[in-house]
């Protein structure tokens, strides 16, 4: 369905624009959240439901929370959230984010297959079991390397945040 693509593509571009144009870091992070969710919706359109879930869980859930946490932590003492709340363009943007979330929930309840046509892709494409099969057989070495990378990043993060560096 063409409309589906255009709606979420427009949301992604507008939110991307907001991300780089927002004055403060916190509204910028909300813009980034909207980009993530719009892209998750587009992943559904591209027959990648598992990646859509990961996009919401890892990007919107974990990475963005970490960024927002640091934004709050590093907020200058004089800077207060009331200044952000007063801005009208931020309210309009909040409406856009809400629209995006409602769209995602609507897709979830109606079922992806009703909205997205399955023609043009082989049977079972995007199926999590095929995904897992590929992931743990053909890409097993990559998986191990990435797990080491994550471990190193974990250790590095803890080391850097020691009290006395």
């Amino acid at each position: 369905m063409d409309l589906y693509f255009w709606v979420f593509a427009a949301i992604a571009v507008l939110a991307g624009l907001f991300t780089i144009a927002a004055k403060d870091a916190l509204p910028s992070a909300m813009g980034l959240l909207t980009v993530f969710i719009a892209l998750a919706s587009l992943y559904l359109h591209l027959h990648a439901p598992l990646l859509a879930i990961f996009q919401v869980a890892i990007y919107a859930g974990a990475i963005l929370i970490l960024i927002v946490f640091v934004v709050m932590l590093l907020m200058a003492p004089g800077e207060r959230l009331t200044a952000i709340q007063a801005n009208v363009s931020y309210r309009g943007f909040g409406a856009l984010l809400g629209l995006c979330l409602i769209g995602l929930v609507a897709v979830g309840t109606k079922g992806v297959s009703d909205i997205v046509s399955m023609k043009g892709v082989p049977e079972g494409f995007g199926n999590p079991s095929i995904f897992g099969d590929l992931f743990f057989r053909d890409f097993l070495l990559h998986f191990e390397v990435v797990s080491v990378l994550l471990l190193v990043a974990l250790i590095g993060g803890i080391y850097l945040c020691k009290k006395k560096l």
């Binding site: 990475i63 960024i67 994550l150 990043a153």
Partner: peptide
Amino acid sequence: AVAAAEVAVGLAILI
């Protein structure tokens, strides 16, 4: 995974 590692280390450096 790479993005998660990048953010974890990058934000730690920023702090």
